[in-house]
Design a protein around this nucleic acid. Structure first.
Lengths: 343, 343
DNA sequence: CTGTATTTTGCAATCGATTGCAATTGCTAT
DNA sequence: ATAGCAATTGCAATCGATTGCAAAATACAG
């Protein structure tokens, strides 16, 4: 059934024989070693192409003890068994993938034991890759500290936690929280709710920013308006519905992700509450959907492409034995006006 | 700087020496071979754990010529240099990842040369994995046919194209198109536009369904309303704006993805055109955002989790040398009513 | 206790490349 | 022609596991 490939050579030795040189020479020629004479190199290259020879990557990986694979572990532990369905994940993944491919690395998407990442070092996933990028810390800061001591280099995208022992590319979540909250205060809001799971370090820091901003403007924090919302739309809907029905007054919500914010807008609309007339919403992430909601979403944007680049370049440096410094990625507020109805 | 791991053993031989057995026995014990006595096995296992020994996966992969990695290539070639930012990708990726992890496989996310997948066989990406899942065919049906002849097994999620030589898990896109279009006709729409790049086989088949449905109801196709829209929100906005300004009348749009549909809804709203009063919209994919738009989006849902499962199980069968049949995944129409404004 | 069958274990070849070092070839200058 | 040096190429060890087959250990029957 399967067409057999013509003319295919599988062993470097065969190619060496054909070229009338040794295996070493072939190996060097194909890896473009400066030791090999240009003509020899070309001859070997041509022959390789002609006979459809490709080095066996598994042998190569074994010999070099290196795979050119970086594992990306998505850590935001979603409470339900649902998936990482937040488009923000794709954005950051894309940023990482881009830079990886420039450096000729592949991206292994880890999935399995995020409940306890201490299992990771035992997994094939971990062993097969030259380094691991953790996206978010979830609630496993301590475990990350442990893993940081092992042989496989890691780097983490997340919040800056005091006694961390791993390298970090951090978003300035506190500042992001301040930006978002200040905006709401500036447009005259007083009773600003916070939606998000503050146990997640990143979200916790956005919450810090929120508190700072309220403080500075002499607004006090209403515990009733600090609401734990998992990263999923239907949770946001349910939570918000409860809030509305509870009769706790609020005139704005700072949502820790755009997905939650979009869900909030829809839910408010369903309840006949006008956004932004009655309630203002600010999100976080600036996913591409954000500008298409009704009204378009004001949000905090992290420079995710740059983050991806820094994450990759940092982990590669680590792999090369260099010591690296933490990086902080700036955030900015993206203000969107409600769309103008021409009707 | 880096903490050295205590008690760590790196070679199987060392562990064998400690256990007073041979390398073979250790190897067999760790891979749970029935040849090894239970007590011996336990002793070796305990020792391995105690000394923190893990088999070197690179050596293992080399020896077995197998990596337990499946590559997933996202094919919908987006015209801009933007990313796969459609949440639908994440959904299908999630489905695939789930099933892979059950079977103890890892997922390599391919990225690089989707412009011409004929380069893939030369890439590390291809070599490092035991099989490849292509998500969508893009416009590379012929190239897929070629690659199907090579040693690395592949499977494709996409449209059923007559002379294909690769294994396929197909969504019944034609039927999906019919479902969507019938719905619009049934609610009284006559001038139904189609948004999507019909050169993409999957989209082309949805378009077939659209034409069939119109035909059957005696509606004729208006070429002016068949509009090529790339998979990105801002393209959809621009395209739709042009359509509106062109004064071509239409009272419904069948959008080939939800992302386009959501963008369409927003754009229509901006122009003071009421959805669904003036124009009805139907999308495709049922991304989680779909039920949160205003109004909530009626759409066609493909059973993506099942698709992921079938894709994985098929490729694994192929890897094991079994011959496999194509599978068709059913679609269903999800009708959502506009939300009721209580105001 | 011996012979045979059955479990367990070990020997040694093998997977396919890379690379330090030694050997060879090719040049240049004397 | 030859020493001296640089540019090329080849030899052979090595990376760390798996596995077919043979050998040893154990169990069992007579």
């Amino acid at each position: 059934m399967k067409k057999k490939q013509q003319n295919s050579i599988t062993q470097m030795q065969e190619l060496a024989d054909l070229a009338g040189v040794s295996r070493s020479t072939v190996s060097r020629a194909l890896s473009d070693s400066p030791l090999i004479n240009k003509k020899t190199k070309e001859k070997i290259r041509a022959l390789a192409k002609k006979h459809n020879y490709r080095v066996n990557e598994k042998a190569r990986n074994f010999r070099l003890q290196k795979t050119n694979i970086i594992t990306v572990v998505m850590m935001l532990d979603i409470k339900s068994e649902q998936h990482m369905s937040d488009p923000f994940f794709l954005d950051i993944l894309g940023g990482i993938a881009d830079t990886l491919s420039i450096h000729n690395y592949d991206l292994l998407l880890a999935h399995a034991p995020i409940h306890n990442i201490l299992d990771l070092p035992d997994s094939r996933t971990f062993q097969q890759s030259d380094g691991v990028i953790f996206v978010g810390q979830g609630k496993q800061h301590e475990n990350l500290n442990q893993i940081a001591g092992l042989d496989t280099p890691i780097i983490v995208w997340g919040a800056n936690i005091p006694d961390k022992e791993y390298s970090l590319v951090a978003s300035d979540n506190v500042n992001g929280g301040i930006l978002a909250t200040n905006h709401l205060i500036q447009i005259g809001r007083k009773k600003i709710a916070f939606f998000g799971d503050i146990e997640q370090p990143e979200i916790g820091q956005r919450y810090e920013g929120y508190k700072n901003a309220l403080d500075k403007h002499g607004l006090k924090i209403d515990e009733q308006l600090i609401i734990d919302v998992p990263f999923e739309m239907h949770h946001a809907r349910e939570t918000l519905t409860q809030l509305i029905e509870s009769n706790n007054k609020f005139d704005a919500v700072f949502c820790c992700t755009d997905v939650i914010a979009l869900s909030a807008i829809a839910t408010l609309n369903e309840h006949g509450i006008s956004v932004p007339k009655d309630v203002s919403i600010v999100g976080y992430d600036d996913i591409s959907m954000a500008s298409y909601s009704n009204p378009p979403l004001t949000t905090v944007r992290q420079n995710i492409r740059w983050a991806g680049r820094v994450l990759v370049e940092s982990i590669l440096s680590k792999i090369n034995g260099e010591t690296i410094a933490d990086t902080i990625i700036q955030s900015e507020l993206i203000v969107r006006k409600s769309s103008v109805y021409k009707k």
